[in-house]
């Protein structure tokens, strides 16, 4: 043992700078884990690419069968035409991956702490809950960007579908989808905190329930009548409706965006409240010992 500590090594940053560095440290930790986990490539790149090939080809097949051209990019947004179906499928695929990737990135980020039994370690540092979430959220943003870039590039290269033709309206739609993904992930993290590994399957499967009800690839008017009110209550339904409206030549769908914004805000508040309750239960029941 040597004794070479310099006194300034004990010095701590101010509260704001320390918070910012904690957020960055969490994000960097998860980035390093991703880089060293080849199997995660399936979540980030392989499945999104497979989805794009699947839905893009179905759309193109439908377009060809109806004699509506060979590419998706030129289709009109009028409901019922084959090129529109191709556009709906491809825009739905790109937008779906925003919400899906955000959700699994954030949720698997937390799962990583449970798998590596790092939960007690984190709880015994000054790291606050919101700093942790912000750090994993930042990582999720980068991961989602990579995945969405892959999907959008393939859609353009293989099916001539240019996502940027959706225009500036794409920005609020994308932001709302990211927030929806966050909200679902927070609820899933809450369930994992409370119920442990039994709830892990929800990380990958939870959104599968939301997908058909949200009208990702079709208007919810095509759903069976009893399910339509449920679909209308989901903020994701209104975000995807706004996204679909952007594929046409009509005006920006402000009404859908406003409803989607309110719904997303409500969903986030509910998810945060739920997570807070689950964390309190986690502490009260001493569930941290699962990871000791």
């Amino acid at each position: 043992m040597s004794a070479t500590e310099a006194p300034d090594l004990r010095e701590l940053r101010g509260p704001a700078a320390a918070s910012a560095h904690r957020v960055g440290a969490v994000a960097r930790r998860h980035w390093l884990v991703l880089r060293r986990s080849p199997h995660r490539i399936f979540d980030v790149l392989v499945w999104p690419v497979v989805d794009t090939l699947l839905y893009g080809s179905i759309g193109l097949f439908a377009a060809k069968a109806a004699g509506g051209g060979t590419g998706a990019g030129g289709g009109s947004a009028e409901l019922g035409t084959a090129p529109t179906l191709a556009v709906f499928l491809l825009s739905g695929t790109v937008l779906w991956h925003l919400v899906h990737q955000t959700q699994i990135s954030l949720a698997t980020g937390f799962l990583e702490e449970t798998w590596s039994r790092n939960v007690i370690g984190l709880l015994t540092t000054p790291l606050r809950g919101w700093e942790y979430l912000a750090g994993v959220g930042l990582f999720a943003l980068v991961r989602t960007a990579l995945s969405t870039l892959a999907v959008a590039s393939l859609a353009f290269a293989a099916y001539a579908f240019d996502v940027t033709t959706l225009g500036l309206g794409l920005i609020p739609v994308a932001a709302l989808l990211l927030l929806c993904g966050w909200a679902v992930a927070l609820a899933v993290v809450g369930l994992v905190l409370r119920y442990g590994s039994g709830a892990e399957a929800l990380v990958w499967g939870g959104l599968s329930v939301v997908m058909p009800l949200s009208g990702v690839f079709y208007p919810v008017s095509t759903l069976p009548a009893p399910l339509r009110p449920v679909a209308e209550a989901l903020p994701t339904t209104h975000v995807f409706a706004a996204g679909r409206a952007l594929t046409g030549d009509g005006p920006t769908p402000w009404h859908e965006l406003a409803v989607a914004t309110l719904g997303t805000a409500a969903l986030l508040v509910l998810a945060l409240f739920f997570l807070g309750r689950m964390l309190a239960s986690f502490r009260r029941r001493g569930l941290v010992t699962r990871y000791s």
């Binding site: 004990r10 010095e11 940053r13 320390a18 560095h21 904690r22 984190l122 000054p126």
Partner: peptide
């Protein structure tokens, strides 16, 4: 990671 979580001003050192 932990040096940053503790809030150290000179984490590398």
């Amino acid at each position: 990671l932990y040096a940053d979580l503790y809030g150290l001003r000179a984490p590398r050192a």
